[in-house]
Design a protein around this nucleic acid. Structure first.
Lengths: 138, 138
DNA sequence: GCGGATGACGTGATGTTATCACATAACTGA
DNA sequence: TCAGTTATGTGATAACATCACGTCATCCGC
């Protein structure tokens, strides 16, 4: 069990890492990991839940898809400090990039405080065209 | 046709406004507006699409639900300046509040520029407990 | 007024995303 | 060994969203 993770979590994590910089839906994962023995959505969703909980992957709400955390290194495993970065998502090519900006984090903290909400989770996604796709003809 | 909107858009908008400060899913709208003659999901989704396009409602990605824009006043109608504010979403009671913060908007602009992405849409949601729910026992 | 273009709507089928419910197996520690 | 917990298998179902095709009304140029 790689990284000390349960088998299914390891399978899903490896698949997502092999698509670094992209996001896969649960059913795309299911299709790709069917041959490895994952037979139903439940199996995938359970693995995803575990990986989300320990911060090894992130959910992209605007795509209903999942991407490997760009900062989770080998050996962090359980107990890894979970961050919730912002993402830039390209509508054209599907590229997903983490945006870690201290100023953004700071402002979000202030906004959250002022809002009177006890913030438990953040969804910060910038959706558009990545540099390459914006420059491309068409 | 209230506000010069097509009938179905007007029905959906009125329903969402009657739940100001909350969000409703497409199927909740369908259930409530069935008696008014809206029979299928398509009918609802078409109305939602039109309302989103002219900025009279917003989609809350983390809920797969929709909420009336807090700033769209009577008479704005088509051509209304569409903003995409941030939202605070209470997991407990379902409250949805728009957060319009100039500093946040400014930082997002900078982050977007630096990212090299041509940003077409933003999803900014703070999910947690509203003041009342955070204070409540249990 | 005819005819085409457009926009709104009705409706059944289908596609996609996510969860429930219940059974079985595997690991862990007294 | 046995109980408690965690992980998994699997079929059914729920929730969210779109496709495809047809109809009807309005508008506009001729």
């Amino acid at each position: 069990m790689r990284d000390g993770l349960p088998r299914n979590q390891a399978l899903v994590l490896d698949m997502l890492r092999s698509d670094q910089g992209r996001a896969l839906t649960a059913y795309e994962l299911l299709a790709r990991l069917g041959p490895a023995g994952m037979r139903g959505p439940q199996t995938i969703y359970r693995a995803l839940e575990g990986l989300l909980k320990c911060g090894l992957i992130h959910r992209i709400e605007s795509l209903n898809a999942f991407t490997a955390c760009a900062h989770a290194h080998e050996g962090h495993g359980y107990g890894h400090h979970t961050h919730r970065p912002a993402f830039a998502v390209c509508r054209n090519c599907g590229a997903v990039r983490e945006l870690d900006d201290p100023a953004l984090a700071a402002v979000l903290g202030v906004v959250a405080d002022r809002s009177g909400f006890a913030v438990q989770d953040r969804v910060i996604e910038l959706v558009g065209a990545c540099g390459a796709c914006a420059a491309a003809p068409g």
